[in-house]
Design a protein around this nucleic acid. Structure first.
Length: 695
DNA sequence: GAGCACTGC
């Protein structure tokens, strides 16, 4: 049933036609003569494996509404295919879009393709990502993030601007890509002129073809150097120790070439770096080794170190090498040239979601075969390489899953449900997900959105829900912001929401924990962490967003900067709704209560009560929790609201504020229907408060 | 009394 094609299918007759295409001296887009650079680049483009597939691809796209293109690293699919499609004229006057999971990719590929087409970036070729839109009326080929296309679909459900959409890196199965799959599948029958090209590295081709209704598959070879794979003979009991040992052996016995080691997190990586340095010091007659950690929370300047040259020959004339110890960031997001050896212990931290407990947590888990292949491929970018897998060949074959579980099965779907509702998809249970999430996960999301007032009892989007769906925020935070308008504290809440949606703004480097804690205490607000965050943000603004000020106050500049851009975007969006975002010049106690009530309006489902025994227990779930030690609260309030529940060494609630329990009953009476509460201390207390309120 | 894989709008 499935039609499969090989790039070799191109007939000679077609090749003649193609060479004519290349004879042009005048750029059809600009009507100017092509530059010399254009022809230089063209020669290199011709060497890409995908170049051979031009005619086959165009024919397939002409004849089919959906085409699947499989091409490994180095095939050139991301840069060439959208160009080919545009050039072919299949799409007529409409535009070609190509989605990417990551912002940097969308940006850098667009830049490259603009050069290849000899046009200016932002004119015929552009990109569109959050906070940065480099497109114009002239733009015909647009690289964008998946999330951006999803946003566009909210305004233009038929995606009427486009004639061809390429969904790239489909094998990664990012949340947004999966939603686009289902969405575009629904759009296609209503847009017979729209073409979809699903592009991917090696994937489960059968599954993709089945999902995309038997779409033909075009397979393009990659261009990589061979990588020799080594497995351990016996299962490795301690992958950390094994990894250190392997690095030392490579450094002592293997030829020149840099090393990349995959570990799971910041702490592990820092420890490994220290140990590797120690062990290498003990060796005689070896070259110098620079050991470089790499993870996302590392400051950009430190991340740049991975591109440094390896150390020069030492006094014995032996060449040096560098060893990069990295999280999964080096698996897809960052590519480092010159890596010859990859060490893969086979683990990574993965998000898991438990709908019953409503908790997303990170768990160190075995990687998939696809991930292992991706990791080993990192050794063959510039010359033949070697990959040392610290597990047996048997466990690779029998124990590792073929593919990483798609994100849609591991996430809280609150925002997804809101997005789908806004896109006009009412029957979520029958939405055509490539991998449908557990019904319980969907139910949880629907239930929470109903409590927040985003969906009515029929499951339809309310006016509030409609506005929430348009804000680039988690549903809780979106609710908080919209609620603040009527309480006239939108300026403050807008800042709080922005800071809550970026990584932690308070730095706490191991070397100066005390200093950092003192610095933080200057921002501390006795009522809680939400107001503390507001303090920090306002001080950042007051100090003119100065990087030095951040450094001196142990504030994460990167986080603050992005909070600031988010805030600007939110203000803009809120103004579009017709709401003004205003700060109050003075904030008496009553005003602080208003801020806290807005927080309660969104997080009433995340409240804990201090029991007589002294510990905290969460409302409704009845889980015993501890307030995270990072809190700014210096006393033990009876009722607290928390922003997140984190499961690490203990059950912690983090980012906590004191609240008045009366507000819970006032603001969220449906959720606080005490008849549904189990008979415990919390219920008794709330009943008492209720009685007082009535009398 | 202590920990944060990675993305994205």
């Amino acid at each position: 049933m499935n039609k499969n094609f090989d790039s070799k299918d191109t007939s000679d007759g077609r090749k003649v036609k193609r060479s004519k295409r290349e004879e042009a001296k005048v750029n059809p887009w600009t009507h100017k003569d092509y530059s010399f650079k254009y022809f230089d680049i063209l020669e290199k483009r011709k060497e890409l494996p995908v170049y051979e597939a031009y005619e086959t691809l165009i024919d397939l796209v002409k004849e089919n509404q959906i085409v699947i293109l499989q091409g490994e690293t180095g095939s050139g699919k991301t840069t060439q295919v959208p160009q080919f499609l545009l050039e072919s004229g299949i799409g007529g006057d409409k535009n070609v879009a190509c989605t990417q999971p990551r912002r940097v990719a969308a940006m850098s590929v667009a830049k490259r393709v603009a050069e290849e087409m000899d046009v200016r970036l932002g004119e015929e070729v552009g990109y569109s990502i959050r906070f940065d839109d480099k497109t114009s009326a002239k733009t015909r080929l647009k690289y964008m993030t998946d999330g951006m296309l999803l946003r566009e679909a909210m305004v233009d459900p038929l995606l009427s601007k486009y004639s061809i959409i390429c969904l790239d890196e489909a094998h990664e199965r990012i949340l947004n890509t999966d939603i686009l799959f289902g969405l575009i599948k629904e759009v296609l029958p209503n847009r017979p002129d729209l073409k979809l090209v699903v592009m991917s590295a090696t994937m489960d081709a059968d599954k993709f073809q089945k999902y995309f209704e038997g779409a033909p598959l075009l397979d393009v070879p990659g261009r990589m150097y061979p990588v020799e794979i080594f497995y351990t003979e016996e299962p490795e009991e301690d992958y950390f120790a094994g990894a250190i040992k392997t690095i030392v052996q490579i450094h002592a016995f293997e030829e020149k070439g840099d090393i990349l080691l995959f570990l799971t997190g910041e702490e592990e990586i820092e420890n490994a770096c220290a140990e590797i340095k120690d062990e290498v010091k003990k060796l005689d007659g070896v070259g110098d080794l620079s050991v470089i950690p790499l993870y996302s929370s590392l400051p950009p300047a430190m991340q740049q170190r991975i591109f440094e040259d390896p150390p020069p020959r030492n006094k014995h004339g032996i060449e040096g090498r560098k060893c990069i110890v990295s999280t999964n960031i080096a698996e897809t997001s960052l590519t480092i040239d010159g890596i010859v050896y990859v060490v893969d212990p086979g683990f990574s931290k993965q998000k898991v979601y438990n709908p019953r407990l409503r908790i997303e947590s990170l768990l160190v888990s075995p990687i998939s075969k696809a991930s292992a292949k991706q990791r080993s491929g990192r050794a063959g970018r510039t010359k033949p390489g070697k990959c040392f897998r610290l597990y047996t060949e048997h466990s690779y074959k029998k124990e590792l899953d073929n593919n990483t579980i798609p994100e849609v099965l591991r996430s809280n779907l609150g925002q997804v449900v809101l997005t789908l509702k806004k896109l006009g998809i009412d029957d979520l249970v029958h939405f055509d997900f490539m991998d449908p999430p557990a019904p319980e996960t969907l139910m949880r999301a629907l239930e929470e959105l109903n409590y927040l007032g985003a969906l009515n009892d029929e499951g339809d989007l309310t006016k509030l829900g409609d506005e929430m769906s348009q804000l680039p925020l988690d549903p809780n935070l979106a609710k908080m912001l919209l609620d603040s308008v009527e309480r006239k504290c939108s300026g403050e809440i807008c800042s709080i929401v922005s800071v809550l949606s970026v990584p932690n703004v308070f730095m706490r480097p191991k070397e100066c924990i005390k200093k950092a804690d003192i610095a933080k205490s200057k921002f501390a607000h006795p009522d809680g962490d939400h107001l503390t965050l507001l303090n920090a943000f306002e001080n950042y603004k007051y100090n003119k967003e100065d990087q030095k000020w951040c450094w001196n106050n142990f504030i994460n500049f990167r986080s603050m900067k992005s909070a600031s851009s988010i805030r600007a975007q939110l203000v803009n969006q809120m103004n579009n709704f017709g709401y003004k975002i205003e700060l109050s010049p003075k904030r008496p106690k009553e005003y602080l209560d208003r801020i806290k009530k807005s927080i309660v309006s969104a997080f009433f489902m995340q409240v804990a009560h201090q029991e007589r025994a002294g510990h905290y227990m969460t409302v409704k779930d009845n889980k015993v929790v501890l307030i995270h030690p990072s809190t700014a609260i210096d006393h033990k309030p009876e009722w607290v609201l928390y922003h997140e529940f984190i499961l690490t060494s203990k059950n912690y609630i983090r980012t906590v504020s004191e609240i008045n329990p009366k507000w819970l009953l006032e603001i969220a009476p449906d959720y606080y229907d005490l008849e549904e509460f189990s008979n415990n201390e919390i219920k008794k207390k709330l009943l008492k408060i209720q009685k007082k309120m009535i009398s």
